[in-house]
Design a protein around this nucleic acid. Structure first.
Length: 795
DNA sequence: AATGCCTGCCC
DNA sequence: ATTCTGC
DNA sequence: GCAGAATGGGCAGGCATT
């Protein structure tokens, strides 16, 4: 199933007004292939059960191994192979035609493949034929999809929406880039001053993340607005939403059924942007009502698909298969093509590649379109590098890590390279920026119309939010650990909660209770220790293109460790499997999540997230098969899926079994780990088990909040994995047994591993086992060991 | 003033 | 966060 | 392997309701 298909897939009972082009729901087709809907209630099912309950052809790999009864703890659960590729049901052919376009051959590689293929000296070779076709399109042989508006006049919102529709019509990334680039070029040609606005609407942002502009609008308010705007009841809207899994579609449908008396003024990109900004700004008493009426006003001016994308934008999910990274590439192509066009020429492949590499590298240092776009317009995409450099005040996108399933995988990947292992701390990412008042350099403003930066101390989050107001303690202590001669720096760290009494790190759940806004130094209750692991900028110069080995050295020379305030992340440089294993174990004992593994030398160790964002590896115990907490839980409810999960269950409510009270206590929802085929299958097998209401022996809060859309007979059991067990205000599992009067236990990062067809509902993991697993955890066990009896301690 | 619901943001 | 999927 | 889109628990903060 591809994203393009999903976006246009509608619910089972939902129909659109005539003239709306929408793909046939795949589910109906897949369901026809699926045969058996026999409930899984048989106790004596042995090895062949999996086949009995699915439409899969016989396949030796699908034999579920029997499992020791009654021991659903760590690592004992039977492993169930995932469906092998040849099991997959035939996929629907995608209809992705637009103006005579022939799509490129499947399997053909693109120039991006070439660029990413990883050699140290990467000079892309010529792409194969299909790629060249695409490049020609990028270079502008095809006329714009939306006819030109008057130059200098506002960009019609309809033009953007036309592009969005084209994007929905294909799953191919190169085609998406082509459409996007073509439209951006049109904007550059006709209304260049609006390019920034357009790009912002494409990535669905109103301002830089660190400016803290919040929409304050979610599903609830949107449903209200759509209902009011179209004169339909909230219940009707909810019903539609359940059926088509997308509020944008609901809005479009509702508007199309509505008689419009006055033809509204056509929306422009600028008007929409301003409208959204105004909605975001609304605050205070009666604010929600004012937000709703502002949304209504925008909606009233929206025609057809405009309503769909307006609402999707407000919901924060455009579902275009187009996000930051693809826009970045499209933008580079648009600029170079536009620049060449002005000279009556076209860019060749090398130029396109150069432009892309340039923009990626610029964005890597200074991820702010607000600054980059005007700079490119002024200096050209080839020269812009000199003008846009990493600087304090603009948060860098952080390097991320790829999960690895075994230490041996790490060794394979980094074979013959020098690498380092660092503790992976369980806190909050903190990118610390600093410019000393004594600094001789003045940095450009971080935003359009902002002040130049002379003196600054800020903390940014993993997602570039400004956390300075949350961590006044970090900022106030900086003079303890920054050498006085330091002029400026950007430092990548993890802020971790500190238990000073026991001299340990606090669990994340504890750190989370810190206040967030405008915290005064005296009000800090949870102390924090900064664990620094990388240096991105020092004394006026970016160091992201130095090797990690050099960056680390610089970092150690520049800062002073102060116990419990500022330390360097603990690390070990070894390629020895056994030593790494020991270090991993040690990290867990020290309240960490596992290890980060990073290359030490060469290009691959640079800090360039837009070039290769997942160049680091992470290894945690629960990634390793046969390690980590595994539970067998009963499916007692489900929620309707949205977006690409429309018309199947998108997530499920799971429970454990309390042997004493003979009741099923809710543990968690689960929504990841399923293949699309499995989601289809589970809809088939669970739908017949739906019941009107919760069983009296289901223990789950009564409120509307966590109530599933449907309840089930307690028959189906699944194996589920989690990183940790946590105290829960919301779930009932082992309530009271974990040493905290009313709180139950839930799972951190739960994911689906496989069905346990050999188990019936009351064979599920029991409440007491869950309590035991919770109490056994290092952080819980060690805490009371150190502190003495401490069972009434409340988080 | 207390409670409940919603949203955004951490992981 | 974790996981799956098309390219 | 990337990029995108599904989905998790749980907290503070802000508004609405009682």
């Amino acid at each position: 199933m591809s994203s393009g298909k999903k976006q246009t897939t509608l619910g089972r009972f939902f129909t659109l007004p005539p003239g709306t082009d929408v793909a046939v729901p795949i589910q109906s087709k897949l369901r026809a292939i699926s045969t058996s809907s026999k409930p899984i209630d048989n106790e004596n099912v042995a090895s062949l059960k999996v086949e009995g309950t699915s439409s899969k052809p016989a396949d030796n790999e699908n034999v579920a191994s029997p499992k020791v009864e009654g021991t659903p703890v760590k690592g004992t659960a039977a492993k169930r192979p995932k469906s092998s590729p040849d099991n997959k049901r035939p996929k629907k052919q995608m209809v992705a035609s637009y103006s005579g376009e022939t799509s490129s051959k499947p399997g053909s590689s693109s120039r991006h493949d070439e660029v990413d293929s990883g050699s140290e000296a990467e000079k892309p070779s010529l792409p194969p034929a299909a790629g060249r076709e695409m490049l020609k399109k990028l270079a502008g042989d095809v006329p714009p999809a939306y006819s030109d508006w008057d130059p200098g006049k506002p960009t019609p919102y309809a033009a953007l929406v036309t592009t969005f529709k084209l994007l929905e019509g294909t799953t191919k990334r190169l085609e998406k880039i082509s459409h996007t680039s073509r439209f951006l070029r049109q904007v550059l040609r006709l209304s260049p001053d609006e390019l920034l606005l357009v790009v912002h609407l494409m990535i669905n942002k109103l301002a830089a993340d660190f400016e803290g502009v919040e929409m304050g609008v979610g599903e609830s308010l949107l449903m209200k607005a759509i209902g009011e705007s179209c004169g339909r009841s909230l219940d009707k809207i909810r019903e539609d939403h359940r059926e088509c899994g997308d509020l944008g579609l609901v809005a479009m449908k509702s508007r199309n059924n509505q008689l419009t008396i006055f033809a509204p003024q056509p929306l422009t990109v600028a008007v929409v942007h301003k409208g959204l900004l105004d909605i975001a700004k609304v605050k205070g008493e009666g604010g929600q009502g004012r937000k709703v009426s502002a949304i209504r006003k925008l909606l009233a001016a929206a025609k057809g698909d405009e309503a769909k994308f307006l609402i999707r934008g407000l919901e924060g999910k455009l579902r275009l298969g187009l996000a930051d990274r693809t826009v970045l590439v499209s933008l580079s192509s648009a600029f170079i093509t536009h620049e060449r066009e002005l000279k009556g020429q076209k860019p060749n492949t090398a130029m396109l590649d150069e432009a892309e590499l340039n923009l990626r590298s610029v964005y890597s240092e200074l991820p702010s379109y607000e600054i980059i776009i005007p700079a490119i317009r002024e200096h050209g995409i080839i020269n812009v590098k000199q003008y846009c450099k990493l600087q304090p005040g603009v948060p860098v996108k952080p390097m991320l890590a790829k999960p690895t399933k075994a230490i041996s995988e790490v060794l394979d990947r980094f074979e013959n390279r020098r690498f380092t292992c660092e503790y992976k701390y369980d806190g909050e990412r903190a990118q610390i920026h600093y410019v000393s008042p004594k600094s001789s350099i003045e940095y450009p403003p971080a935003t359009l119309g902002g002040e130049p930066i002379k003196n600054l101390a800020k903390v940014f989050s993993r997602n570039s939010e400004d956390l300075s107001g949350k961590y006044p303690d970090i900022l106030a202590a900086m003079n303890n650990w920054v050498r006085p001669e330091v002029e400026s720096f950007v430092l990548d760290c993890e802020a971790v909660g500190l238990d000073e009494i026991n001299n340990r790190l606090l669990p994340f759940q504890m750190l989370q209770t810190r206040k967030r806004k405008d915290v005064a130094l005296e009000d800090v209750k949870i102390r924090v220790c900064v664990h620094a692991f990388d240096l991105l900028f020092l004394n006026g110069k970016p160091v992201v293109r130095e090797s990690l080995s050099d960056r680390r050295k610089l970092m150690h020379e520049t800062f002073i460790e102060v116990p419990n305030q500022f330390v360097f992340a603990r690390y070990m440089d070894s390629s020895n499997l056994e030593e790494i294993t020991v270090f991993l174990d040690q990290s867990v004992k020290d309240s960490c999540e596992g290890l980060m593994v990073k290359m030490m030398d060469g290009r691959e160790s640079f800090y360039e997230p837009s070039q290769r964002s997942r160049n680091w590896l992470k290894i945690k115990k629960d990634y390793i098969d046969a390690l980590g907490d595994s539970l067998d839980l009963v499916v007692i409810g489900a929620y309707w899926g949205k977006g690409k999960r429309t018309s199947v269950y998108g997530s499920f409510l799971l429970a454990c079994y309390n042997l004493g009270t003979q009741s099923f206590e809710s543990v968690c929802n689960i929504g990841t780990g399923f293949s699309e085929a499995e989601l289809e299958e589970f809809y088939e097998t669970l739908h017949p088990l739906e019941i009107d209401r919760a069983k009296p022996f289901y223990d789950h809060p009564n409120g509307n909040a966590g109530k599933p859309d449907v309840w089930f007979e307690p028959k189906v059991v699944w194996e589920v994995k989690a990183a940790d067990l946590t105290l829960s205000p919301r779930y009932r599992a082992a309530a009271g047994l974990a040493g905290h009067r009313d709180k139950g236990v839930s799972l951190r990062f739960p994911r689906f591993i496989g069905p346990r067809t050999d188990k019936s509902g009351d064979d599920a993991t029991s409440s007491s086992q869950i309590a035991e697993m919770y109490l056994r955890q290092d952080q819980v066990a060690n805490k009371s060991a150190a502190k003495g009896v401490d069972d009434n301690f409340e988080y």
